[in-house]
Structures are given as C-alpha cells and as structure tokens.
Amino acid sequence: MKKLILTAAVLAFGMGMASAQTIRLGTEGAYPPYNFINDSGEVDGFERELGDEMCRRAELDCAWVTTDWDSIIPNLVSGNYDTIMAGMSITPEREQVIAFTQNYLPPVPSAYIGLSEEVELEGGIVAAQTGTIHAGHVAQTGATLLEYATPDETIAAVRNGEADAALADKDFLAPFVAESGGELVWVGEDVVLGEGIGVGLRQSDTELRETLDGVITAMKEDGSLNAMIRKWFGEEAQTYE
C-alpha cells in the first residue's frame, strides 16, 4: 500500500520526489509509555504517535530508529538520525550540545520507588538511568548514586535489594508500582525536574526546528496534543492550558 502511494506520488510530482528528504527519528525504545518496542517488534508509545502525527502535519517522510540511551546524543550530532524523541527533558546542560524545540510534555513529576516507605533517601543508595536528569538529581541529594544503562535495570536493582530506591519519571514507574502487587511502593515526595520534554535536534538544523516548533504550537492550540497525552498517561495527566 505504502509503495503504491509512493509510486503514485513519484508519478504525480515527476522526479521532484528524489530530492524529498526523509527525517530519521531517533528514540530509545525502552521507556514505556513514552516509547517502547511493542510485541511485534515496532516502535510504539506516546512519542511514536506524536512523531507520526507531527510528520504528517509537516508533510515530512519519517522513519524511526532505535539506539542506546548512552549514545543517543553522540549519534544525533554525528548525523545518524535527525531528531531525538525519547522522553528527553530540556536542560541547560543538554542545550549546550543540542537544540530543543518547545516542550511537547509539560514538566512532569519524578518519583522514588522502594520496597518500603521508610527507605532513607538522603543517605541511602538510589538507582537511576545513566545520563538522565534523575541521575543528576540523585547525585545532588547526597545519596549514593547507582547508574544503569536502561531504566528497566533500575527497577530490577530495587527488587533484588542492590538499591534502596530508584528515581524516574512518575508516568514510567506508575504501571510497575500498580502491577507489583504491593511489592513496590512510592517513597517520599515527588520532585519536578527539567523544563519539560522536547524534540532534540542538531544545533545547525534550524529549519527543521522551526517546522517542528510550528507543528507543536498548532497541536497545543487545537487540543490534539492534550488528547494524546490523556490517551497515553491517563485522565489526570498534566496537560497544556
């Protein structure tokens, strides 16, 4: 079907298609419900739906690429793909290396989980994914930071007692807590980190940045972004005014 449309398009626009560029969207694929690889092996989640919709509105050809979280920024700046949509919060440190669009998710609370509510957060051992705002925050609190390559491993570390608690986005942790049958519980207060989640781009890619910024503004105004947020993060999720 896709091929048919493509062929039709080529016929319609002559060789104009040859210069049409494909935008490659990079993601991690290990952070449900933001982005994950579903059981048929495809990228799925909130960011998949949002990215596809943004590409449709901007009339861009898009393809999804997965990569390790560790190398997600180096691979972007060396040109392996053109954007990062991987639940990446906008922070001043990252803005020194890459550019961001305006946020497509407002700053969301992060939360600690542990095996009991009495866990010591300040002096204890806290697990977080390496290179995230959560890891940065734990390092500042005075707790001992245990870093893992994937968010899933931070939860496994809490379960097997290597860490007293784990810090991550609350929306990511919520299903794990709900489905653990009381094994995992929320610990302490929620914290709000970062300036929301935006699309990461190369600093030299100003044109694409303006395009995507425009699409996000339009989606915020017509309410379609809010609808998408409610679909993936529940009715109580924080939305745009």
């Binding site: 290990a30 994950f36 059981d39």
Partner: peptide
C-alpha cells in the same frame, strides 16, 4: 535484554 526486561500491561 530487551525481551527479558519486566513488561507491564502496556505490552501484549
């Protein structure tokens, strides 16, 4: 690693 990780009900 991808398949073995904990899967919540977001997955089939």
């Amino acid at each position: 690693r991808e398949l073995g990780g904990t899967k919540t009900s977001a997955f089939t």
